[in-house]
Design a protein around this nucleic acid. Structure first.
Lengths: 198, 198
DNA sequence: TTGTTTTTAGGACAAGCGTCCCAATTCGTC
DNA sequence: GACGAATTGGGACGCTTGTCCTAAAAACAA
């Protein structure tokens, strides 16, 4: 097999295992078992485990960016597109209930390991943050677009964390409804704080 | 030294290390280094690493419960008390920025490890959930008290996760303000969805 | 003081880890 | 088919891990 094909298989297997078991817990042997190559052969593709992590983060960045680019075409309005982001909790619901958010759990783990790739992993959040910011801008919320983006990211992360802990579909449904409602308010140009001050 | 005193020192050291480095990454040697006892001596206090984890979770449960019980006395109104919960993000702000939420990150890690103590760790969330639920009941939201408790837990978790990733004080301040405003609305008996439907 | 129990230190152990080497195999090109 | 390069499998390496044993020290009881 060509070098690149094997390399991509390793990255795909590592991506999956890092998500399901965590980076630290996943060993070379685990990945080799999935890809069905010998452990020794690894060194020809990746010199260290950290190099695999870098490649996995790179792949995740590309995957997420591709997904957002696709939404940019599919979604008619920025509100539609932001709703697609919220709906990740549905589309990936089963995996999130089992393993949490792939981005949030990775950044948390790397923060605890004080790992050099922390900065790269945080870019995963930033990809969504930047994209959401732009959607809110198009939506007409130019002044607080980044704040709204961060807020929605936080809401989504919180829902994912508790979905993982409790596996409660009713809770997830309520959080989704609540985020939809919040988004409608955003689109109407009225944010929660302004209303509270009325 | 008495057996219990040493045992408590081990638990305290493990509690701290599990939080800062994660359960998996923390070794017997790490804990022994902090407590300054020999590695071999461990077996006399804990037969397995999982037993230490159980003890750490037990301690965290007791600590949190004690904190909540204290708030029950200190806080004049249920709104005051719930505000104390929100303010954890300020009081433990520096640690949360560095290591994330001690509860959320532990449950996430144990979920990935598929660890037997998952259920016990989730009780940490439930301690807060139950307490918050009661506060909302006293606040006069008897019908949706548990829903409100879960929602606030999620908001808090999300804020902690992004605080850990970005270490952005302005973001944390905004999330706090937003949660305060939400709480005021709750106290006024009007939740966000009802308002959005007006 | 003597004898018993509790607590300790140090190290052995088998297993798993990331890393690395090297000889054999496969591949692509002439 | 032959040859150099790319790719592979198997295993060695030094280290760390959780676990466990044993003998010495300390604490306590009589």
């Amino acid at each position: 097999m060509s070098k690149k094909a094997t390399r991509d298989e390793i990255i795909a297997a590592a991506d999956d295992l890092f998500y399901r078991r965590g980076f630290e817990k996943t060993s070379f042997a685990d990945i080799a078992g999935v890809v069905k190559i010998s452990r020794g052969n690894f060194y020809h593709h990746f010199k260290t485990k950290d190099e695999i992590l870098d490649a996995v983060i790179e792949k995740r960045l590309a995957d997420r960016q591709a997904m957002l680019d696709k939404w940019e075409i599919d979604g008619q309005t920025p509100e539609d597109r932001i709703r697609s982001f919220i709906d990740i909790l549905i589309v990936n619901g089963e995996k999130i209930k089992r393993y949490g958010c792939p981005i949030g759990t990775l950044t948390s783990e790397l923060a605890k390991l004080n790992h050099a790739a922390q900065g790269e992993a945080n870019k995963l959040f930033t990809v969504f943050r930047t994209w959401l910011k732009r959607q809110f801008e198009v939506l007409g919320r130019k002044d607080d677009a980044d704040e709204l983006a961060m807020h929605l990211l936080a809401r989504s992360q919180g829902a994912a964390t508790l979905a993982n802990a409790y596996q409660d579909d009713a809770f997830i449904a309520r959080e989704l409804e609540s985020m939809y409602a919040w988004l409608r308010d955003c689109a109407a140009g009225v944010n929660k704080r302004q209303r509270a001050e009325m």
